[in-house]
Design a binder for these strands. Structure first.
Lengths: 230, 230
DNA sequence: AATATTATTATGTATGCACATAATAATGAA
DNA sequence: TTCATTATTATGTGCATACATAATAATATT
């Protein structure tokens, strides 16, 4: 009665599915029948099944009933972390340094991404993230000053650009891509690796409600890995 | 009455949060008050707030009430795709080729990962994934034959190892890492790129209920990108 | 003052009921 | 046979109510 039965029911059903008691694609008993089996109300079974549906374990259709998902999706979720947290997670001391900061006309690829007019300027920043004073990641970023005017006043000596933006625009959306690139001369120099080293690149563009905020390329130093579970 | 009010309420509350009407960390009205405002039952508000809590937008505490999350988490979710689907998504024709298949004693790093005894053999496979007959990704994999004995009978001429395993063990768990590596001589050869090219590497180990199934390294060809949203 | 005990409070959960809705099956008309 | 109409069914949702639970506040005890 009190042992949060919707969770227990969810668990039980999940076990039946994972053990193969109910095959992939198979129709499972309806809510009413399950409610009777578990000796609870249909509402409770409903909640358990809804949870499984949200997780992609089952598919539910009105009148069609509930069946085990044919192709259980394997998704890896991971946080887009703040670099400082990544560094500190390794036990190292974090520091960041603004290497370059200027207002200038961005290349077309960037002005397109930020939805800027042809002659509009944007803020360009280069920053180096350090772990125990050793280069950890190198960031090349464009910011749309119209979206966050107060950025002009910020020095970024105590807080990184990313952290400042997250505080200013906490609920932005974004596109991200992950890839591997060979370090060119400039980046190799900044990260203190040999030219051509394989670097993990995160390329991200974020916006809030139609207003584009920033686009950046973040090059992680050699040997960096992103971990996740599925 | 019929316009799925819990969704509407969730939306409305989300807007108030995103617009800054309720600040980060701020306590929002309790369920009863909101129910009165929206003219609905507390149950309905509860459902909306529970959804927001699951998304990491708000934090809820008994007696403490509900408050906007201080650091809204930025997580990128993406599917660990089947390579065939990745290839076909680009419009290319997929084919895969088993380059090597043998049963042998794995190195310690692998026997540890697969929880094998010191002298136990495992199945080693190398496969090349092709997009329009051009190398797309190169896979080096160890499989624990004890976990999936039927694998001995499978030729993998119509289905890839990964797809076969997904069908055989649909609900496995796993650890994944993503990184960038320079192509060594063998891999450069397999993917037909110059040695030292930056490759995107996915390293994955999967198991089902304490029984370790497979561990693999998947090297994507140069220029490959993983896309996601946040 | 420090500690243990007892309210108080907002969320968490379960229930029975009613009705809405989408997908299907059954039926009828052309 | 073909198409449109009408049940039927399982899920989807909302509500009022009751009680459980965790965290806090208030109180009493040492």
């Amino acid at each position: 009665m009190n042992a949060i039965s919707h969770k227990i029911i969810r668990e039980t059903l999940l076990e039946r599915i994972q053990s193969g008691e109910w095959e992939l694609g198979e129709l499972i008993p309806n809510e009413e029948e399950l409610a009777e089996e578990f000796g609870c109300a249909r509402t409770t079974v409903n909640r358990a099944l809804r949870a499984l549906a949200e997780e992609g374990i089952v598919i539910r259709k009105r009148k069609g009933g509930t069946r085990v998902c044919e192709l259980p999706k394997r998704e890896a979720k991971f946080e887009i972390p703040i670099v400082r947290q990544q560094v500190e997670a390794t036990g190292a001391v974090y520091r960041h340094k603004i290497v370059c900061r200027e207002s200038k006309k961005p290349p077309i690829s960037v002005s397109t991404r930020l939805h800027l007019g042809a002659d509009e300027k944007a803020l360009y920043l280069e920053a180096l993230h350090l772990a125990d004073e050793r280069p950890f990641a190198f960031e090349m970023r464009w910011v749309n000053p119209a979206a966050v005017p107060h950025i002009e006043e910020e020095k970024f000596d105590t807080i990184s650009v990313n952290e400042w933006l997250i505080k200013s625009v906490p609920f932005s959306s974004g596109d991200v891509s992950f890839s591997a690139v060979n370090a060119d001369c400039d980046i190799a120099d900044a990260l203190d690796v040999t030219e051509g080293s394989a670097l993990f690149l995160v390329d991200r563009t974020t916006w809030y409600d139609q207003s584009f905020i920033t686009t950046l390329k973040l090059y992680y130093n050699q040997g960096f890995k992103f971990y996740s579970k599925l």
